[in-house]
Write a protein that binds this DNA or RNA. Sequence first.
DNA 1: ATGAAAGCGCTAACAT
DNA 2: ATGTTAGCGCTTTCAT
Lengths: 350, 350
Amino acid sequence: MPDRTHSANEAETVSAMSERRATLVDVAQRAGVSRGTASKALNGAGQLRASTRQRVIAAAEELGFEASPAARSLLSGRSYTVGLLTSDSLGRFSIPVLLGAEDLLATGEMAILLCDARADRIREQHYIRTLLARQVDGFIVTGHRSDARPSLTASLPVPVVYAYTPSDNPNDLSVVPDDLQGGVLAGHHLTSIGRRRIAYVGGPQRYHASHLRLQGMTTALEQAGIQPHGEPLFGEWRESWGRQAAQILLKSVPDLDAVFCASDHLARGVCDVLREAGVSIPDDVAVVGFDNYSEMVMAARPPLTTIDMNLRKVGEIAAGHLLDAIAGRPRSGLETVPCELVIRESTVKD
Amino acid sequence: MPDRTHSANEAETVSAMSERRATLVDVAQRAGVSRGTASKALNGAGQLRASTRQRVIAAAEELGFEASPAARSLLSGRSYTVGLLTSDSLGRFSIPVLLGAEDLLATGEMAILLCDARADRIREQHYIRTLLARQVDGFIVTGHRSDARPSLTASLPVPVVYAYTPSDNPNDLSVVPDDLQGGVLAGHHLTSIGRRRIAYVGGPQRYHASHLRLQGMTTALEQAGIQPHGEPLFGEWRESWGRQAAQILLKSVPDLDAVFCASDHLARGVCDVLREAGVSIPDDVAVVGFDNYSEMVMAARPPLTTIDMNLRKVGEIAAGHLLDAIAGRPRSGLETVPCELVIRESTVKD
DNA sequence: ATGAAAGCGCTAACAT
DNA sequence: ATGTTAGCGCTTTCAT
């Protein structure tokens, strides 16, 4: 029984594990067939006696055989790899997209090469070259905002799907959350719990999402025969703007009974100020956020009702479309993924 | 001059770009040498006339030649790729580590294969096999907490570096932030601005970091001839625990003049309650957080003085060590990266 | 200093 | 139904 003093030997033993990876020839030999036959057996190709196929598969398993991707790639010109290009440092939004994509791609034997261009076009070009040199089968392009980015599709010889951050070319394939429908969900929820004087606090005007979410809400309110209460407010995507907006609302429309905020940050800021002003949430004013950003949502007092963009699903769908495109079934245009309402105590008492 | 109606043709032209990648043979032909010579010229190997080398390099550039990684990989058994394995969904801590690693690896011609095991051991094993099948040259293993995780090193035939989340085998190479020194920084800062009654609010007891940060603070206070004020408090990594802790402090040690919190979340919770209780920050009580998590730090009122763990650097250093190990210069043991103090208004007036 | 040739591990066409 | 062979793009001896 080895004790501590043998650790060096143990290390050798372990590294011996890696002696040499079993190769197709090994498998063929062991199964008593030729390489060609072994290859066919393993790939389910050609005409083989079932028993032969079995024998080869068994041999492969015993040897722990895994085909060399390098060799396969050399032959096929493919790499069974997709490049995930994020235009700016991986952030709150790109992560779930990435994870969703990974979920789907992992099942398809595809690996993800990660490249974060840090909002730097030069760096982006560099990465693109690197990825192309590595023969990636396709690209998923993502970013930190839902406004369009310059298209890359025309300059790439492989399929590209934009996820979350769409391409500015409407013919490219982009998968994005449905901000408009998200706004509708929020509006409906508020009217359905009897609110009638509903204000809106958005992010910056230059963000399309600020407008779409308002528009969605407005649509929902119209169905209940009402209008947004007071002027919609626009500012920064910050808690501090949420706080400031709440002050404005308290002055301009003190009779409001609900606020829909275009982000959870804003909603939290709004809640803080309302609460400190003695307004009870949700009794006096109901608050709905956007993003379902768990840190915000749970730290807010009370926890926020919010809209979830299903970013994971956005990533999954994008990855699925990419696989399709790689398989020769391209698609194009803008595809939206529905948002979901998540109800918590900021609109409905526990 | 093409106008919009030619877009289809333009598209063809563009896709023609991808006709066929220039190969080494093309370069050799163009330079009027053999493949072997061209290869040597491009790799700076062998004995070549300078002029020949130049000619080849020029030809390669004109053709936009990039050596096929597949072919190279087939020959060398290496893939010029490292696997980045995160044990749980990419989070706040693993992202900067990953970006730091990417920064360093990108310069070394290395690409990153991303695998997120979602805290699932089965999934982790699956990914490890996939990555090994792809002949990754090494692994960077990371996670969401700074406590040790089970070692993978012995079961992997390639070098492994643990970043942020260390291995439970002290002989493995792990790179982690220096929590102890971070605590010292916080303690020194508080004593240096004249505080003497300094309380501590930690995270869960089961997190080593909770203790290390306290220990660091205590060391610093001892140098100033004082002790932590009141009993150190431990709870969850949540704002709500920060709020609760502040209530406790207000009761148990109302004369405190500073609080060091083991995370920015806690610090924010503490600030909220103190402020609402009419305590002025930093006049009455100075507050120091930990993480330099920008969302928290900037949303807190006032913005938080905090300790930055330099996670990006942790990632960079880990990647550097991995490259060294791959190059045959392995290292081992636990390496700590110093934290930095970031001063904001929660301790020092603007 | 340069060229020729072998071979990395695999698949696909062709032959049997 | 199975075996044989050529070749993917590159590097590396070994000749010259």
